[in-house]
Amino acid sequence: MDQKRQQKPAPLVQQIQEVRENTKIVRDKVRSSLSKLTPYENIYNLPNFLTVSRLIAAPVTAYLLVHDHFKAALALFAYAGITDLVDGWLARRWKLQTVAGSVIDPMADKALMIILTVTLAVKGALPLYLATLILGRDASLAIAAVYYRYASLPAPKTFFRYWDFSLPSAEVHPTTVSKYNTFLQLMLIGSTLTLPVITSGAYGPAVLQWAGLHSGLLHQAMMYFQWLVAATTTWSGLSYSYLKGAVTILGENEDLKAKQGARGRAIIGVTFGSVVVAAVYLAFTVDEKKEAIGDEDLQQTWAT
């Protein structure tokens, strides 16, 4: 009898063991759930604020340009260029880089390029083939970005979570040629905005004459610069179709990430490849015809 009593655990001890086991199970479940939670980022910082201000500056610059306020448009464009450098430096200096910033920053650059490219093309300051390349590249990358965002967004994939950029899903890493191309595009837009400022007014023409320059020579230099930008734009757009490191998809399923990356690059290759073909056609038809028949009225209006 005494042996049986010693082998049989007391009810209180048994209850304590059951509570410990249940506690361990609950603790493991909580830890597992916490490890699967999607982290949130603090997106409210000065670099992101400057980036958003550049987004606002884009349509305002176009408005000033349409109404021939060239000096004000050039000044606001210069502000956008300066803040583009400052916000990146601040983010690196104070370690304020965010996935949202990596998305919004190129978005602000592209918004400025798209709006001003359309405006300058309408006013005849940019040839149609070049505007098609610039806009087509951005459109193809935007289509791929929509796919990347949806495919890599952690579940549940809802409309509000899709637009919540504090939920990281994919990181964009601009290629080397893309960085140079962005700089050259901004230089082209800036030069095009500067042209009517330095060729008009009380002192502009006199300074050009003193330097041995004239509007025809400046127009020819701009044409060569446009060819350079067209070449780098083509190279930049196609680089996103074959460089695997341009976009990093977040997640743990490597096979799924590889498939999503391949699909995104294929989207860019097909869409932008079609844009390049269309731009070549426009260059040798519409734009060449304008040059052949001497249709320089808009360009002369812009440069004088």
Rank of each mutant, 00 (worst) to 15 (best):
Q260C: 10
L217P: 05
L64A: 02
E296A: 08
L96T: 15
W94I: 14
V276A: 12
K157S: 11
M223C: 08
K123R: 06
V13C: 04
K259N: 12
Q15V: 05
L120M: 11
S35K: 04
Q7P: 03
I189M: 02
D287N: 00
M187C: 11
V122G: 07
V13Q: 00
L184S: 04
P154Y: 12
Q185D: 03
I56E: 02
F225C: 05
A145M: 10
A279P: 06
N181M: 08
L112W: 01
V26L: 08
Y40E: 06
Y203C: 04
A91S: 12
L37W: 03
T61K: 01
H67I: 04
L130G: 10
G294H: 12
T248L: 15
P11C: 00
V247N: 06
S215Q: 11
D84I: 01
L186H: 08
P11Q: 04
S35A: 13
H214D: 15
Q185I: 06
S166R: 00
L50S: 03
R265E: 15
E252S: 10
G237M: 08
A151C: 08
S32F: 05
L130T: 04
G204S: 05
R5F: 12
T38M: 10
T182F: 02
F70V: 01
P156H: 15
K289S: 00
A91N: 11
P11N: 02
I134S: 09
K157M: 01
A131N: 06
G237F: 07
Y240W: 08
A230V: 11
W210T: 06
L208P: 10
T232K: 15
Q7L: 12
S274V: 12
T192K: 01
K36R: 03
S35H: 03
A170C: 15
K244E: 13
L153K: 05
G269I: 13
F272Q: 05
A75P: 01
A121H: 10
E254A: 14
F272S: 04
I267Q: 03
D68L: 07
Y150H: 08
G190D: 02
G261M: 10
M107L: 13
F272V: 03
D2T: 14
L256H: 08
A125R: 02
A278P: 12
I134M: 14
I16W: 00
L46T: 10
T233V: 05
A142Y: 07
T158R: 15
L120C: 11
A221H: 07
Q300V: 09
P196V: 01
F49D: 05
Y79K: 00
M223G: 13
Y40W: 07
Y148W: 11
A125K: 07
F165A: 09
R20S: 03
P11M: 03
T248M: 13
H214Y: 14
D138Q: 15
A292Q: 14
L120I: 09
G264L: 11
T175G: 09
R27C: 11
A278W: 13
A230E: 03
T199K: 06
L238H: 11
Y148D: 09
K24Q: 07
G81K: 01
T119M: 12
R137C: 10
V66I: 12
S241Q: 09
G136D: 07
G273K: 07
A202M: 08
P11S: 05
T117H: 02
S274F: 13
I268H: 06
N253V: 11
A211H: 05
D2Y: 14
V172F: 11
Y224G: 07
Y242G: 03
L46M: 15
T271F: 13
